[in-house]
C-alpha cells in the first residue's frame, strides 16, 4: 500500500498525467465531502478541491509524499480554511472549527443500500423530483417546468424527501443491527 503510493507519487512528480488522474479519481469524492463539511456547499467545495489538485500539479516536482491520503486530506483541510478566510475577511483562524482529519467516514455500502431502498419508498412524485435533482442534477426551475409544477412545490417536496430519508435511516439501521 505505502509502496504503491510512493510509486504513484514518483510518477506524478515526473509529470505522468496518468498517475495524476489516478490520484484524482481515487480520492475526489472523499475530498469533496471533507471540504463540503467545512465550507458548507457543493460549489464552494468543488472549487476548493480543484485548487488542491491544481497546486499539487503545479508543485509536483518538489512533492515528497509517502502516503497520499493523509496528505490530500490535510491539503483539503487547509484550503477549506483559506476559502473561509477569503469569504470572511477579518475572521481569525481561532474561530474556525477544528476538524479532526480522522472524522472522515469511509463509504459504507450497507447504509447506502438502505438509502436507496428508502428513496424507492417515497411517494411517486416526491421520488421523481428527488431523483431529478440528486441524480440528473437538474435545477429546481427545470424540474418545475418539466413536471408542470411551481418552484415552491419542488422546493417543498425536496425538503420532505430529504427529511424522510434522514429520519428513517437510524431506525432502519437499528433494526438491521438487531438482525445481525
Amino acid at each position: 500500500m505505502g509502496n504503491a503510493d510512493q510509486e504513484l507519487m514518483e510518477r506524478l512528480a515526473a509529470g505522468d498525467a496518468g498517475a495524476f488522474e489516478t490520484v484524482f479519481r481515487t480520492h475526489y469524492r472523499l475530498l469533496l465531502r471533507y471540504a463540503c463539511k467545512i465550507v458548507g456547499d457543493k460549489a464552494a467545495a468543488e472549487d476548493v478541491v480543484q485548487l488542491v489538485f491544481a497546486n499539487i500539479w503545479e508543485g509536483r516536482k518538489r512533492l515528497k509524499v509517502k502516503q497520499i491520503k493523509p496528505y490530500l486530506l490535510r491539503a483539503t483541510h487547509n484550503k477549506s480554511l483559506t476559502f473561509l478566510m477569503q469569504h470572511q475577511r477579518q475572521s481569525s483562524l481561532e474561530l474556525l472549527p477544528p476538524m479532526a482529519e480522522e472524522e472522515v467516514d469511509e463509504v459504507d455500502e450497507q447504509r447506502e443500500e438502505v438509502v436507496r431502498l428508502l428513496i424507492d419508498a417515497l411517494p411517486e412524485q416526491r421520488r421523481r423530483i428527488f431523483k431529478m435533482s440528486r441524480l440528473d442534477g437538474l435545477k429546481y426551475r427545470e424540474i418545475a417546468t418539466q413536471l408542470g409544477l411551481s418552484v415552491k412545490t419542488v422546493e417543498a417536496q425536496m425538503g420532505k424527501a430529504l427529511q424522510f430519508l434522514r429520519s428513517s435511516l437510524p431506525q432502519v439501521l437499528k433494526n438491521s443491527e438487531v438482525s445481525d
Binding site: 458548507g40 456547499d41 469569504h87 470572511q88 429546481y140 422546493e155 417543498a156 425538503g159 430529504l162 427529511q163
Partner: peptide
C-alpha cells in the same frame, strides 16, 4: 431545516443563505 438543507445541497441556496450557513458552521458545533 430540511428544505434549506436540500437547497444548500442541490445548489439552489441564495448567497445570503449560504453566508448565514457558513457563519453558523463556523461558530456552532
Amino acid at each position: 431545516d430540511a428544505a434549506l438543507a436540500a437547497r444548500l445541497l442541490a445548489g439552489e441556496a441564495s448567497e445570503s443563505e449560504k453566508e448565514r450557513h457558513r457563519i453558523s458552521l463556523a461558530v456552532d458545533a
